[in-house]
């Protein structure tokens, strides 16, 4: 399923790729290829591949014996699943009420202006912007998950500086 890379991949990358297919297969067989496990399988696929390509969805549909439209329907219903590759850096702005009350919209606005709309990646592939509904760090509001780490009590100014630092134009 992931054999359509144009550039010739190295051997190590090749085995890693095989491994991913094997791991995904194992996840499906663990659920006896039941269509009910679609969300579990999509979770695994996204973990392994980073995002869900049409080929990947097609092969999952075939193995779980589900209509392809149902697989895409599920993958696009849930915000957790991404059909696009992620950026080098990721910012997830918490828009929970506590963060909202403490000015999270200003942070998001800065990111959207400089990089991309929430849920998207900047055209240069540098930054993915996302929003979340309460990341549970209300005590640190407004909070952002930057490359997997929670950063609290941010200001738009700090975000701007941060973007400058990683070279966003």
């Amino acid at each position: 399923m992931a054999t359509t890379t144009p550039s010739k991949p190295s051997k190590a990358a090749d085995t890693a790729r095989d491994n991913r297919a094997k791991l995904l297969e194992r996840a499906m067989s663990r659920h006896s290829y039941s269509g009910d496990a679609l969300i579990e399988v999509l979770h695994t696929a996204q973990e392994l591949y980073g995002f869900l390509t049409p080929d990947l969805l097609k092969s999952i549909a075939r193995k779980l014996r589900l209509p392809p439209s149902r697989v895409l329907g599920v993958a696009t219903f849930y915000h957790f699943f991404s059909l696009e590759p992620k950026g080098e850096h990721s910012y997830i702005v918490c828009l929970g009420t506590a963060c909202y009350v403490k000015g999270a919209l200003g942070l998001l606005e800065t990111l959207e202006r400089r990089c991309a709309k929430a849920g998207r990646t900047s055209p240069d592939g540098k930054v993915s912007v996302n929003s979340a509904r309460c990341i549970g760090a209300c005590g640190l509001a407004p909070a952002v998950i930057r490359d997997g780490e929670i950063v609290g009590r941010l200001t738009p100014r700090q975000v701007t500086e941060d973007l400058d630092r990683i070279g966003v134009k």
Partner: peptide, 10 residues
């Protein structure tokens, strides 16, 4: 029995 159609997005 074809299930060609479904909904995407929400």
């Amino acid at each position: 029995g074809a299930h060609t159609w479904d909904l995407k997005g929400r």
